[in-house]
Amino acid sequence: MDLEFLQSMDVQILVGVGVAVLAILVAAAYLFSSWKPKGCLDPENFRGFKLVKRQQLSHNVAKFTFELPTPTSVLGLPIGQHISCRGKDSQGEEVIKPYTPTTLDSDVGHFELVIKMYPQGRMSHHFRELRVGDYLAVKGPKGRFRYQPGQVRAFGMIAGGSGITPMFQVARAILENPKDMTNVRLIYANVTYEDILLKEELDSLVAKYPGRFKVYYVLNQVCCLSHVAIS
């Protein structure tokens, strides 16, 4: 076996090793890009999440921030779906009600609920009593609707009062996805200007995505109907 043959064998081995390494790197990159962290929700059992911040937005509306197990954890809620929250009413009886977080899985480590608390609301009582450090029992995801990016050219929404939260979630998901060019139009009705939830956040989306997102605020005051359009 001469020297020239040995050198050619070495080259072939090196090329083979290089191709194998390249294949491994490509496969690893694909797996990493397609990998999604496991969500914290359980569709069958309630799990407790710690309240770490409570911000009063108005006399009957508050934003509740709940901590996930780690700073990189995600809730794991598909766009357009909701969670079930369990608590106790003023009589100590168990009550379960659906809510939609205003955060997405891109907001890692926590999730937020914007809650309007009604005087006679059974679950409203539970949220009024929640203090930082308490735990909220949550189960999910729930719901049949799942938004698919790019399925329509324009997405129309109509919401009233606290019903804005699922619309806000979907609007954020559409607008913040660089691959989704869907336009969003939202009609949002309330009794008074002070009743408008997430107005600052909605106006911020309008400013950040001009032309793609428009909100039409409708107010009902003393039998008079007025509206303000944001373009």
Rank of each mutant, 00 (worst) to 15 (best):
A62H: 11
D2Q: 04
G160V: 07
V21Q: 11
L104P: 01
E44G: 01
A189Q: 12
G92R: 00
R128F: 03
P210H: 14
V17E: 02
G48R: 10
D134G: 08
M123N: 00
G18T: 09
D180L: 11
I13H: 15
P149A: 02
S58Y: 02
L68G: 05
T72R: 11
R212V: 00
Y216D: 14
R212W: 07
E44I: 08
N190F: 13
D42G: 09
P37N: 00
G161F: 14
V15A: 13
L130D: 07
A189N: 15
D89R: 10
G48P: 00
C40R: 11
G163I: 09
T192C: 01
R185C: 13
Q169M: 05
M181S: 13
I164C: 07
E201L: 04
V228T: 10
A159E: 01
G92E: 03
H82Y: 14
L219P: 00
D203F: 08
H126Y: 15
N220H: 14
R144T: 09
V61G: 10
V19Q: 06
A29S: 05
R144L: 12
T102R: 00
T182Q: 06
S84V: 10
M9E: 12
W35A: 11
T165R: 07
L14M: 05
V21M: 15
V95A: 10
L41F: 06
I158T: 07
V15S: 08
T100P: 05
S106G: 09
L130E: 05
R86P: 02
C85N: 09
A154T: 01
D134Y: 08
G121A: 10
L77D: 06
S124Y: 09
I187V: 11
H110R: 06
K116T: 05
S33Q: 14
Q91R: 15
C223T: 11
T182R: 08
Q81H: 06
A229R: 14
G92A: 05
Y99D: 02
V206C: 13
P43E: 03
P78C: 13
S84I: 10
F64K: 07
D89I: 13
R153K: 15
K199G: 08
L77W: 08
G92C: 03
C224E: 08
G87Q: 02
E94I: 12
V17P: 04
S34C: 12
H125D: 05
S124C: 04
P69F: 09
T70C: 06
I24P: 01
V15N: 07
V170S: 01
F127N: 03
V206F: 08
F127L: 09
P98G: 04
D180C: 13
W35Q: 00
V95M: 10
F155E: 01
L202V: 13
P69Y: 10
E201R: 11
P37R: 02
H82W: 09
H82P: 02
E112W: 08
F46C: 04
R212F: 07
M157G: 03
A189K: 15
Q91E: 15
V114L: 13
F66T: 04
I79Y: 12
G48C: 05
V218G: 00
V132D: 01
Q12T: 13
P119A: 00
A137E: 14
A27W: 14
N220P: 00
S162D: 01
P101C: 04
L186H: 06
M157Q: 10
L175P: 06
G80H: 05
D203R: 08
R212P: 00
V108D: 00
M117T: 10
S106N: 01
C40A: 15
R86S: 06
M123C: 01
R144I: 03
R185V: 11
